[in-house]
Amino acid sequence: MAQLIIGPRLYSCCNCRNHVSLHDDVISNSFQGRYGRALLFSHAMNIVAGPKQDKHLLTGLHTVCDVYCSDCLQVLGWKYERAYQQNQKYKEGKFVFENSKIVKENW
């Protein structure tokens, strides 16, 4: 009889299944990405960050960098480096992954 291995619920790159974040690190599931719905995470793993750039997003001016899967270099979303409005500071250091770019594992 096969043994069922139970691990943490996590999210992986939709392209190569590289693990990129844990479900426990989800802060919000009500974010808007470039291509639709997105999730805000407190931590990420197995990613590479691109250059920082200032962008005007729905909630104002932010310094962000695109975030790529470290294995296949698929763009997954972005990281907030700096928020210029006080009420947006909670996003600093957090990651947004597009729902269309990640898949659930161990659910």
Rank of each mutant, 00 (worst) to 15 (best):
E81H: 14
Y90A: 07
Y84R: 04
N29A: 09
C13G: 02
V75E: 05
E81T: 03
G93N: 08
E92A: 07
L73R: 14
F31L: 14
L22A: 08
Y35C: 00
R9F: 02
I102F: 04
N106V: 10
A38F: 11
A83L: 06
Q53G: 06
E92L: 08
K89L: 10
Y84E: 01
N87L: 09
Y11H: 09
H62Y: 06
W107G: 10
H43F: 10
A38N: 14
H43L: 06
R9G: 00
D66M: 11
L76H: 08
Q74V: 13
N106D: 14
I47T: 13
A2H: 02
M45W: 00
C13E: 08
F95Q: 14
V20A: 00
R82P: 06
E98G: 05
A49I: 05
S21Y: 10
Q85D: 10
Q74L: 15
F97G: 03
F31D: 02
C69N: 11
S30L: 04
G93V: 10
I6R: 12
G33S: 03
W107L: 10
L58S: 15
W78C: 00
F41W: 08
Q85K: 11
E81W: 08
D66T: 00
Q88F: 04
L57A: 13
P51Q: 14
P8W: 01
V103I: 04
G77R: 12
N18R: 11
F97Y: 05
N106E: 15
L73G: 02
D66G: 09
V26K: 11
K79Y: 00
L57N: 12
G93E: 08
S70P: 07
V48T: 14
A83N: 07
N87Y: 04
V67M: 12
L40F: 09
Q32P: 00
L22S: 06
N15V: 12
C69T: 12
L73I: 13
A44S: 14
F41A: 02
L61F: 10
V96D: 15
R37M: 07
D71G: 01
L76C: 01
L73C: 14
L22W: 12
S12C: 09
G77M: 09
Q88G: 09
I6M: 11
S12H: 00
E92T: 13
V26M: 12
V26L: 05
I6G: 01
N99G: 07
N46M: 08
S70I: 15
N46W: 05
F41V: 02
K79S: 04
T63S: 13
W107P: 05
E98I: 03
S70H: 12
K101T: 10
L57S: 15
C72T: 03
N106P: 08
L39P: 07
R17K: 09
L61E: 07
C13A: 07
I6W: 04
